[in-house]
Amino acid sequence: MSEPTARVARIDSDEPTGRVPRVDSDGDPTLIVRRPIIDMQQLWKTYRPGSLDVHALRGVTLTVDEGEFVAIMGPSGSGKSTLMHIMGCLDIPTRGSYKLDGEDVSKLSENSLARIRNREIGFVFQQYNLLARLTAWRNVELPLLYARVPGAERRRRALAALDQVGLSARAEHRPTQLSGGQQQRVALARALVTDPALLLADEPTGNLDTAAAAEILGLLQELHRAGRTVVLITHEPEVAAVADRTLRIRDGQLEPAEIAA
């Protein structure tokens, strides 16, 4: 695992003003100075598809500290996706408060949520969600377009992000010319390019074979070791196992027993 270490080192050098937290000289993550990135208090989410209220979340309270790697596990229908949507600022809770990196985002307007998603959150989806007509680096630069970053800097940062995931050689390839694992790495680079406070991966290995899945999980672990805050949503225990801490959700509530890594 000497090569990944080299990549991690590049994260630091590429992002001098980034969010990678203060690490002691040995790079030991246990000595990271911690503060909460996610702070959810008594979150409720209620849908009213008909006349009956459906509670997707029933009072979820959870905190994720800076630099943590947390997995959220649950069967389908458990409220896992709803939690992910609110965590990723794609949706707002019906009740309760949610502070993301210190900012209360539970009552923001759609435009403000878009800004938060752009700056604070890096998404990785199961379906990769790359735009087929754009090359790898053009896909990676997309979030920077919405951050109004000038063209030359976008390209520089997109290439740096591709380098972090080991795909600099494929910058000019289109998604169809890449394997599933490579596509997911491009998606990971896209999530990293804005240097977000939180990396939110929703079943990132769901469409991948074992080898490619291991590769992606390895990358997530490296990023975590370099100080990234990562939340991984999955239904597979073996995937959740790579995280430091696993939270289980069932019927819209977190199960009390937390498994520390």
Binding site: G88, L90, E110, R117
Partner: peptide, 16 residues
């Protein structure tokens, strides 16, 4: 629709 959803997730405001 999917592309629009993705762009929104990546930070595109309705105005964009």
């Amino acid at each position: 629709v999917r592309e629009i959803g993705l762009r929104k997730a990546l930070g595109a405001a309705p105005t964009d």
